[in-house]
Amino acid sequence: MNRIKEVLEQKGIKQTWLAEKLGKSYNMVNAYVQNRQQPRLETLLEIAVILDVDVKDLIVSNKHS
């Protein structure tokens, strides 16, 4: 699971803009945002750089408190 959707909403950024910056199709980015598909680690790191966030902010922890 990822938090790309939440981060995009917090920053007021559209999926189309992110898709353009990543050089990926809107459909691929939408699949990431809707958690239908998970990006490769390299892509996740690239998204973090583009959105200016820590990569940890883009993923949901698997640890339960």
Rank of each mutant, 00 (worst) to 15 (best):
R36T: 08
V55M: 02
L18N: 00
V55L: 00
G23W: 15
V53N: 05
T43W: 02
V33C: 00
Q38H: 07
I50Q: 09
N27Y: 03
L8T: 04
I4Y: 04
S61E: 14
H64M: 02
Q34Y: 05
L58S: 04
L41T: 00
L8S: 05
K5I: 00
V7S: 06
S61W: 02
M28F: 10
K21P: 09
K24N: 13
G23T: 07
L18V: 07
E20Q: 10
G12Q: 06
G12E: 00
E42G: 04
V55P: 09
Y26F: 14
K14S: 13
G12C: 02
S65N: 13
K24S: 13
K14Q: 14
D57C: 03
I50M: 07
I50L: 05
E6T: 11
K56P: 08
H64Y: 11
R40A: 14
T16P: 09
D52N: 13
Q15Y: 07
V60I: 12
T16S: 12
L22F: 09
G23H: 08
G12R: 05
K56T: 10
V33D: 03
L18A: 01
I50V: 08
V53R: 04
V55A: 11
Q38Y: 10
D54G: 07
I59Q: 12
V60A: 07
L8R: 03
V33R: 01
G12S: 07
I47Y: 06
E6F: 01
I59S: 12
E9P: 11
E6N: 12
S25F: 08
E9D: 15
I13Q: 02
A19S: 11
Q34C: 00
V55Q: 03
R40P: 12
Y26L: 13
K5F: 05
A48L: 02
S61V: 03
R3M: 10
K5L: 09
Q34H: 08
T16H: 08
S65M: 10
R36K: 15
L58Y: 04
Q34V: 06
D57P: 02
V7N: 10
K11I: 11
A31V: 05
E42I: 04
N30A: 01
K21G: 01
V29I: 05
L51E: 03
M28S: 12
I4A: 01
K11N: 14
